[in-house]
Amino acid sequence: MAAASTPAVANAPITQQSGKVPFDYSKPPTIEGFTPVTRRKDETFKEKLLRKTKENPFVPIGCLATAGALAYGLRAFHQGKTRQSQLLMRGRIFAQGFTVVAIIFGVFATALKPKQ
């Protein structure tokens, strides 16, 4: 086997023929055609919940209707009111469907909304 003509140095920086280091690790990389957007300030859970509720108010309404129908239906089932329990469980399914449709509508509305 032939031996390497120049010894490899492990800690030497990789240089191009011009003598410059190809990447400066102290700065983020620059990508042609890409401009980074500024990051929003960190939101608290309450602020994010209020913002999302204002964007699509039907989702929280559907969630509350689903939870209410479930709780009232389980209470009616526990009391032995089978007819009322069945009606409330059907209402829960309707409320869940309403919530799913509201989520899908909100996704499409957000996608079609022009960027600022």
Rank of each mutant, 00 (worst) to 15 (best):
E43W: 08
E47S: 11
A8T: 10
G97S: 06
P7N: 04
Q96R: 07
A4S: 03
Q116W: 10
F94D: 03
G73P: 05
K27F: 01
K20G: 04
K115I: 03
L87E: 13
F58G: 10
Q79C: 06
T15L: 15
I61P: 01
F45P: 03
A69P: 04
L49Y: 15
V100F: 11
G91I: 00
Q96K: 09
P36G: 08
L88A: 00
V100N: 13
T99I: 12
T44K: 02
A67V: 06
M89S: 01
I93W: 05
I93G: 04
A76H: 05
A8C: 04
F94R: 09
R40I: 11
L49K: 09
N11W: 06
D24M: 07
V37I: 14
I14L: 14
A109M: 11
L88Q: 01
A76T: 03
A102G: 04
K27Y: 02
Q96P: 03
R90W: 05
T30M: 11
T38H: 09
Q96G: 09
K115V: 09
L112Q: 13
Q86T: 01
K81N: 12
F94L: 08
A67Y: 05
R90V: 03
E32H: 07
G106C: 05
G97E: 03
P7H: 03
P13F: 00
F108R: 14
H78L: 06
L70F: 00
D42E: 15
Q16N: 12
A95K: 13
P28Q: 00
L112N: 14
K54I: 04
Q16A: 12
A69K: 15
K41E: 06
C63G: 05
R40K: 15
A10K: 14
A10D: 10
R40E: 02
R39F: 02
P28C: 00
G97R: 09
Q79F: 14
A102E: 08
N56K: 15
T35W: 12
T35M: 06
T66A: 12
L64N: 12
L70C: 06
A111D: 13
Y25N: 13
Q16R: 15
R40H: 05
E43M: 15
R92Y: 00
F23P: 03
A102P: 12
I14M: 11
A95C: 13
I93H: 07
G73Y: 05
F58K: 15
R40A: 13
A67R: 11
G106D: 02
M89V: 00
Y72F: 12
Q84G: 00
P57Y: 15
K115S: 12
L87D: 09
C63H: 08
G91Q: 06
P13H: 02
D24E: 07
R90Q: 04
K113Y: 07
S26M: 11
I31R: 01
P13Y: 00
E43C: 10
T82Y: 01
